[in-house]
Amino acid sequence: MKQTWRWFGPDDPVPLAHVRQAGATGIVTALHHLNDGRAWPADEVAKRKAEIEAAGLEWAVVESIIVHEDVKTRTGRFRELIDNYKASIRTVASAGIRTVCYNFMAITDWTRTDLDHPMPHGGTALRFDIVEFCAYDVFVLKRRDAEADHPPTRIEAAHRRLAAMSAGDLARIERNLIEWVPAREFVYDRESFRRMLDLYRDLTVEGFRQNLFAFLREIVPVAEEAGVKLAIHPDDPPFSIFGLPRVVSCAADARTLIAAVKSPASGLTLCTGSYGAGHQNDLVAMAREFGSDIHFAHLRNVAHEPGGSFHESEHLDGDVDMVGVVAELLAEERRRRETGRRDAEIPMRPDHGHVILDDIGKKVNPGYSAIGRLKGLAELRGVMRAVERYRS
């Protein structure tokens, strides 16, 4: 697999020189300063590509060209925004970038209640506390009909938890849930977030799914013509939050998507942490079933907690059989080489990482610390070497 690294551009606390020292050869990034639905200018793409190549690296994957909320709801400027998306696909393809990762999550990106959860080793990790989320959703945000989305025992626990929270605790949870989102140039406050939720009030899960398929039917032919692989990222967490529809949360969702818009240009990002947060998902089985449609892999692990909470564990620990997943992905690469597929090598990146060692106390993008990801990449590289060396 091609070893890559998520990089947020010139303002990223992790410089490209350090990425290269970590052993990655590819960069996963976007034009974050222009990621508001406009078509990406060719000169800006060329500038970013030249910066990456000057560091001895390759811009391997675009993650992401933003899918605007108007596109997801098919309201407002959605037609113009889809045309812009097509133009951006053509532009990155002209620059030689052949993989585009994107997501179709309503309003939110990946969501956690805690970005600095203390771990036994002394560092910190990302965590989703279902009781804290319920406390915010029901008693702070006071989302209409929120009580119907949580069992009574959770609501009771959330009420007790809320009574014990300080103002600082509440501010942290709100910031993490609705204000801070990675690689986004804007934030919501409580009122603007409620207004966004209203846009989705009458949109059913099936309606949202059809909006995704309508979007794909427009952009996939452009990707085919340009030689680009589209890789949809799963919902994170892989269950509904804030009452929003989720349509890429499990194997059945992936199966439906692939069947709906059948094309070698349209496939999956296998994010083992996002899918792995769902108890229903067997990541080894999914890597095996969807192997030919996996165009990108995010490799990280999660540990389930009682009641639906989870935290991000070490890359080789947790509830995802990471060795089994890597073995399946390497087997898929061998099959591709044997059949002459030009995209035999699957780009992967060590997704997220604990804040450890010298990164403690430094400015880091949550989830994207240098040393935690370096450790994860080293562990994954070791698994890859061992599987290849000792495969039967």
Rank of each mutant, 00 (worst) to 15 (best):
V71M: 15
A50G: 04
E80W: 01
K72N: 04
D70M: 05
I65W: 06
L57K: 00
I66Q: 04
D83M: 00
K49H: 09
A60H: 00
G56H: 02
A42Y: 07
R48K: 10
W59S: 15
F78H: 12
K47S: 14
R48Q: 11
V67E: 03
E63R: 03
K86Q: 15
I66M: 13
E63I: 08
R77L: 08
H68A: 12
V62R: 02
D83F: 11
A46H: 05
K86G: 12
F78V: 07
I82F: 03
A54M: 11
D83Q: 08
E80S: 05
V45A: 13
A55F: 03
D70C: 08
A60P: 00
R79E: 15
E63H: 02
D83R: 09
E51S: 11
L57T: 01
A42M: 13
V45K: 09
D83P: 02
H68I: 15
K72V: 05
K72C: 13
K72R: 14
A54E: 10
V67M: 08
E44V: 06
K49R: 14
V61G: 08
L57D: 03
R48T: 02
A50T: 01
R77K: 14
F78N: 06
I66N: 03
E63M: 12
K47H: 11
E44G: 09
I66D: 01
K86W: 05
T75A: 13
K86Y: 14
K49M: 09
E63K: 14
V67W: 03
K49Y: 00
E58L: 04
F78S: 10
G56T: 06
E53T: 11
E44W: 00
R48E: 13
E80I: 02
E51C: 08
I82H: 00
L81P: 00
R48L: 15
E53Y: 12
